[in-house]
Amino acid sequence: MKFAIALHSPAHAPSSRRALLFAKAALAEGHEIVRLFFYQDGVHSASGNVVSPQDESDTVSQWREFVSTHQLDGVVCIAAALRRGVLNVEEAERYSRPAANLPAPWELSGLGQLHDAVQAADRLICFGGP
């Protein structure tokens, strides 16, 4: 089965951890992940500036490692990211901000990427949100 996964909640929310566990389990069972799309507060799960307390799981690093290891398409909604100060190098320069905080392997893109993922997938699985 082909899954598109959308994450709407920040890294410290339980739903971010559940999304990561679901994604790992899906791959372990031989399923395909068409795209991971981070939207609304979910963009914080891709930020390079989130620091987890020592007694908590570092979900941000785990997401980055998971996407890199499996060479997945990890897309961060550009509108949601800009609104929340999550910027790649190009956007930091464009808006004259002092630093970028969206490291590889993440890509900034628009909602069209979510639409394309839904068209290519058998199922869209959403975590978090209103």
Rank of each mutant, 00 (worst) to 15 (best):
I5W: 05
I5D: 09
I5N: 08
A6C: 10
A6E: 12
L7A: 03
L7V: 15
H8C: 07
H8S: 11
S9R: 04
S9Y: 02
P10N: 07
A11S: 14
A11Q: 09
H12I: 04
H12V: 04
H12N: 10
P14H: 12
S15A: 14
S15P: 04
S16W: 02
S16D: 08
S16A: 15
S16M: 04
A19V: 04
A19G: 14
A19D: 06
A19I: 04
L20D: 03
L20G: 02
L21V: 01
L21F: 04
F22K: 12
A23N: 05
K24Q: 15
K24M: 13
K24E: 15
A25T: 15
A25Q: 14
A26I: 08
A26L: 10
A26F: 10
A26S: 14
L27A: 10
L27T: 11
E29F: 13
E29S: 14
G30E: 07
E32L: 15
E32S: 15
I33E: 06
I33L: 15
V34Y: 11
R35K: 15
L36G: 09
L36W: 14
L36D: 12
F37A: 04
F38Q: 04
F38K: 01
F38M: 04
F38V: 03
F38L: 14
Q40K: 12
Q40M: 11
G42W: 03
H44Y: 14
S45W: 02
A46Q: 03
A46E: 09
S47N: 05
S47L: 03
S47K: 01
G48C: 00
G48Y: 00
N49S: 13
N49K: 12
V50R: 07
V50H: 07
V50M: 07
V51I: 12
S52W: 00
S52L: 00
S52F: 03
P53F: 01
P53A: 03
Q54R: 03
D55W: 12
S57F: 03
D58N: 08
T59M: 01
T59I: 13
V60H: 05
S61N: 09
S61D: 06
S61C: 02
Q62L: 13
Q62M: 11
Q62K: 07
W63P: 02
W63F: 14
W63Y: 10
R64G: 02
F66G: 02
F66A: 02
F66W: 05
V67E: 07
V67Q: 07
V67I: 15
T69E: 14
H70G: 08
H70I: 11
L72W: 07
L72F: 09
D73F: 07
G74L: 08
V75Q: 10
V75E: 05
V76R: 04
